[in-house]
Amino acid sequence: MSETSQPSPALEVHDLTVAYHKKPVLWGVDFEIPAGKLVGIIGPNGAGKSTLIKAAMGLLPLSSGWVEAFGRPLKEVRDRVGYVPQREEIDWDFPVNVMDVVLMGRYGKLGWLKRPGKADREIARACLEKVRMLPFADRQIANLSGGQQQRVFLARALAQESDLYFMDEPFAGVDAATEDAIIALLRELCSQGKTLFVVHHDLASVPDYFDWLVLLNLRLVASGPTSEVFTPEMLAKTYGGQLTVMTEVAEVLRRNEALAREESH
């Protein structure tokens, strides 16, 4: 890896176990992610992908284990961590406009009694411009399409100016054009040395999008560079015996490799 000069990994998850009502949903998850990676979290439904990022951010109580970002406990580096929740978790009729939502990204740095000032508004506007939502700044959020809502959430995350991002299915329910725009933005963030953790569902685009993968199915199946980890054997382990999916994915993989070879020539 080129990150050998980096003293501590962007994220270290050590022996993490999470339980709901005494029923474990994640067992002994243990991995390290070097900084500057675009990381995909892949696994079947109910594999604990959302649980993993929520637990890593300290939003859920841990049964055991610990999480460190940049070599320090997550609580101490909260202002360096950004979050994009799933779109369905939100009441979109809530009386706020697009600008209100993006400004929410600034409060982590503002403290309790300070209100966002001119500089914060400038940052929020710049972030909206980046996701091409500035013309919608005064819109009530219910009057946006699904893709636009997702872009507003991304703008809020950008406004957090973090070094480590957790994103829960940012591609869910968005159109192809928005998906392209989002992935371009994520790559740009990565090239600035930021680390992005993205829960993702569409296996076909995995080798295209991510340079690091965390394969998850209630336990950690594998964590490593996409080229090493995105193999039919690993996917078979992750998706446990679902052979139809496996054959499909193997096919997709072969097609993608052919595509990649063609592009490099």
Partner: peptide
């Protein structure tokens, strides 16, 4: 009144609020 922005964030998106320390 004093904590209006925090209450707004916590009401709109409690998970996000917790993630930024509210």
């Amino acid at each position: 009144g004093l904590l209006f922005p925090q209450f707004r964030i916590a009401s709109f998106d409690p998970t996000f609020a917790t993630s930024v320390g509210i």
